[in-house]
Design a protein around this nucleic acid. Structure first.
Lengths: 144, 144
DNA sequence: GTAATAGAGGATAAAAATGTCCTTTATTAA
DNA sequence: TTAATAAAGGACATTTTTATCCTCTATTAC
């Protein structure tokens, strides 16, 4: 559904959000461990998210990544769009560039319905809202 | 959503289905043109689908690919499973191997709902059912 | 049987995604 | 001001996906 890059991005964002609510910044090593992702790879992804304004960062000792109010309100859909583009939300299920209402592919209508479902679910899910469950260990971010 | 391989596979199957209903076999070149896919690549994919019993083939002059009754009834879900595996239908949205009801990822519940939607839609869509619209040019299989 | 045709299958190539390393720059504590 | 720390960024390596080529085998028409 999502690229691996995007999966890591979402997991990292949720983790950083939790730490940010607790008022602290997190370093890449801690993030990599917490979400069980390759350290250098997650570093690249966060660099990208940082440039795009989804996450804040500070260099040097006591530095690290954090989110302030605005990014906490961003939705999973925003992150997916930033990383994977909007192909998932607007693209044709069969990969046809010219698929449209006027010139639909065979699965166009039925596919559009689930595509919209996916979009709505991801749009409704805000990064900031996952912290409570994580905190109580009702949900998890690790691979294994 | 699907791999490119899988998109080509579905498009090819729908095209072959249409031709089969009309009683004829189709060669790889014709298929490649009709669905605007790389000829040698689609050949590989059909080889695979053929081994797995999703499509029939015959070598030599007047040979080609065709579907008989049973494959015409197969669903898009069957094809997706055969090509991409069932990750899309059963995997975690955040790529976590150990995500489960007992140990859910943050987006587990909401993701499961759309995953099920996708599965139901693909399970309901039978390869044989797309021919009429294709025939009447109400739907299309070409990229451009 | 022979020649032509068309899929099967092995091998290889190119491109994209994923993952790693190393140097530079900004920040902090002492 | 200096040393230590941590992200930024460029370069490179590996793996997976996508795409191509070539030879072999089965089938048909003659």
């Amino acid at each position: 559904m999502f690229s691996k890059t995007c999966e890591y991005a979402i997991r990292a964002m949720i983790f950083i959000a939790q730490k940010s609510k607790a008022g602290s910044r997190v370093g890449i090593k801690e993030i990599a461990k917490a979400i069980d992702a390759p350290e250098y790879f997650i570093a690249k992804i966060l660099q990208d998210l940082s440039r795009k304004g989804f996450v804040q960062s500070l260099k040097g000792p006591t530095g690290g990544f954090y989110l302030d109010e605005e990014p906490l309100q961003c939705s999973l859909a925003d992150i997916v769009k930033a990383i994977d583009g909007d192909r998932l939300f607007t693209g044709c299920g069969l990969g046809l560039k010219n698929c449209s209402e006027a010139r639909p592919c065979p699965i166009h209508d039925v596919f559009k319905a689930v595509r919209d479902d996916i979009y709505n679910m991801l749009e409704d899910a805000r990064i900031g809202e996952f912290s409570k469950h994580l905190e109580k260990s009702l949900t998890f971010l690790k691979r294994k």
